[in-house]
């Protein structure tokens, strides 16, 4: 791998890590400890980069299949990686209220980047670049929804192996579960005392 390629992949790694930090609320909500937090960030970053790699392969496939244009995988991967550099600001998603809008903006920026990079690298017009990138993304979504591939199980196994937690629950569900459990505990304790009092009276 050349020096430029190393730099490209390093930037991709940092960008996705930054994005994962920005979306780390789910880790806090699931009460990971500090070590698990770091491991989870790295695990999610790895999974995201893996999905970028698969998207690269699908882009390469559709560019050849529809328009007969071929480029080496490493070159396509680098241009896709370059498209994701706006996510270097991903940690800013942590900002309350503004973060949500910023996330939307970054995603649009990444998509525009990808289309422009495909147009430049493959000499595509805008429609061709859109077709290739969107079909690539759709193929990825389709494959990941095929239950017989058991990708969810593989993901759970991987997360369990790397972070100790096979799945991460929705923060809202966890908070409501906690509040309801507290209510149940209070009522159970009250009933227990009442029963104890009745027995002592008898």
């Amino acid at each position: 791998m050349t020096h430029d390629q190393w730099i490209g992949f390093s930037i991709l790694f940092l960008s996705i890590l930054s994005l994962t930090v920005g979306n780390s609320v789910v880790l806090f909500a699931n009460r990971v400890n500090r070590a698990q937090f770091i491991r989870s960030l790295l695990a999610f970053t790895f999974l995201f980069i893996l999905s970028i790699f698969l998207w690269t392969l699908s882009i390469q496939f559709f560019a050849y299949f529809f328009f007969g244009k071929h480029k080496p995988t490493i070159d396509v991967l680098l241009l896709v990686a370059a498209s994701f550099t706006p996510f270097i600001f991903g940690f800013l998603i942590l900002l309350p209220h503004l973060g949500y809008y910023l996330y939307a903006l970054l995603r649009v920026w990444v998509m525009v980047n990808l289309v422009l990079n495909l147009m430049r690298a493959y000499q595509f017009n805008i429609v061709q670049a859109l077709v290739v990138s969107l079909l690539g993304w759709l193929l990825l979504e389709f494959v990941s929804s095929l239950s017989f591939l058991r990708l969810d199980d593989i993901k759970r196994w991987f997360l369990k192996l790397t972070t100790g937690k096979p799945e991460y629950k929705d923060p809202d569900d966890l908070v409501f579960e906690y509040v309801k459990r507290q209510r149940e505990l209070a009522l159970e304790a009250a009933k227990a005392r009442q029963r104890a009092e009745e027995i002592s009276h008898d």
């Binding site: 880790l27 909500a29 009460r31 400890n33 500090r34 937090f37 505990l185």
Partner: peptide, 17 residues
């Protein structure tokens, strides 16, 4: 977030009143 995750030492305990 750090309170909920138990990083700050005042974490809520779901199994205790």
């Amino acid at each position: 977030l750090s309170w909920w995750a138990g990083w700050s030492g005042h974490a809520p305990n779901p199994s205790e009143l």
